[in-house]
């Protein structure tokens, strides 16, 4: 399971998997670009938890791509559980925390600009 990088250990080639992942990443990117150019009306008009459905699709596809880059290209799938969790969980937890507080605060300031008694656009 663990990646042993001593010369005595001969690895079998993973090229097939690499090209598969490349195909997945390419297809997802093409889908993203097409959606970004067309911007289908029904996706930009429906809103889910404060964001357009289209934006949610973009974010989910991005995480999907990030998963493949980290797991296949960076060999996360071959690392031990301990290393994987130490890196991935720490990052994801802190990122979610930071995004949550900053976006909440940003939205609050937006409301103040919009509904406050001071005109900001003079």
């Amino acid at each position: 399971m663990a990646h042993d990088s001593t010369a005595t250990h001969q690895h079998e080639s993973n090229t097939k998997r690499i090209w598969q992942v490349f195909a997945i990443l390419s297809v997802v990117t093409i889908v993203e670009v097409i959606l970004g150019i067309v911007r289908p009306g029904f996706l930009t008009e429906t809103s889910l938890v404060g964001m357009h459905l289209l934006n949610w699709i973009f974010i989910i596809l991005t995480l999907y791509k990030a998963y493949y880059i980290a797991w296949a290209f960076m060999h996360m799938e071959h690392e031990t559980k301990g290393l994987r969790r130490a890196v991935v969980w720490t990052g994801i937890f802190l990122a979610i925390y930071l995004i949550f507080i900053l976006l909440t605060e940003g939205d609050y300031i937006y409301e103040v600009y919009k509904n406050g008694y001071i005109a900001w656009d003079f």
């Binding site: 990122a95 900053l102 976006l103 940003g106 939205d107 937006y110 600009y113 919009k114």
Partner: peptide
């Protein structure tokens, strides 16, 4: 993450 969430913060601030 810090940079991109700061971007999100400013964008939410000037959403319109």
């Amino acid at each position: 993450t810090g940079f991109l969430s700061a971007y999100g913060f400013s964008r939410f601030k000037f959403m319109d």
